[in-house]
Amino acid sequence: MSGYIVRRLISMVLMLLLLTLVVFLLFSVLPTDPARLTCGKACTPEVIAANRHNLGLDLPLWQQYWDFVKGIFVGRTYGSGTQTYSCDAPCLGYSFKRGEEVTTLIKQGFPATFWLATGAFIMWIVVGVSVGIYAALRRGKWQDKTVMGISLIGYSLPSFFIGLVLLYFIILKWELLPYPSYVSPFENPVAFFQTMLLPWIVLAILYAAFYMRLTRNQMLDTLGEDYIRTARAKGLSERIVIRKHGLRAGLTPIVTAAGLDLAGLLGGAIITESIFSLPGIGSLAVNSVVDADLPLIVGITLVTATFIIVANLIVDLLYAVIDPRVRLV
């Protein structure tokens, strides 16, 4: 088991390195000059050249990449002579555009994204899974058909549509909630909930719709299994058959899906964050692309990918705990 984890961690690091390389190369061929972005309109070629040198952009590409990777593990120093700036490990680079370390920017964006993702996650798991189980137990009846119809609608509605409709009616027209302005839940819990309620709902609708279907189908598959018939043949009550034998096996695959979906969202929910102007990683990602802020793009990509890869590992380890047939070797 520990050997398995070590191997997974090594392959994880290799995967991330490869990923940074691809992103790095992709953006190096873009026709934008990062050094040009470091100062405003009244910039002289001399200043640009100096900045280019200070940021190491005049070095060969392979060396830039090497410095970047080195920065993640041991930190790096920009500039030379008296004008130096040191970026401590893990240094994901320095945003010329924003005049800030990428690590700092991501750290600033993370709380909003974290709260958005976990709040929505709790909502959609509670609603999606319980409604999915309910539909499975009423298979073929009108309740099941209604749930599946609602799920199809929820799944088909794009989140930018639901988001804008809710924003327009609930906040702008009827003024049921104040205009969203993110505050930390530790600072002002009431304002926090007022701001996050709609983003949570928007994000949760899409996922809940999907989880209803997933849960229903998993439960129906499980309830059709031979071991469920055995459980009934033992004389167990229907309640125990479903709770102890059905749910245990039926919900296991949901763990995998939920882990990966949560990890994906921790890398930023771009559309929802943008609609409700939440200062999260999703908004940061959009802005970084608009500004061609290369170091920031690479940094966000790396962090997002790390979440997903780590979540994959955790889910696999969890699976070995849940399902005795899974042995990690």
Partner: peptide, 24 residues
């Protein structure tokens, strides 16, 4: 239900799929 597994019991064709995989 109360008679099932007590007065009358049943065994099935495929014992692997008829036993719950997650319980000893």
């Amino acid at each position: 239900r109360k008679l099932r597994g007590q007065k009358m019991a049943m065994i099935f064709q495929d014992p692997l799929s008829s036993l719950h995989p997650f319980y000893t």
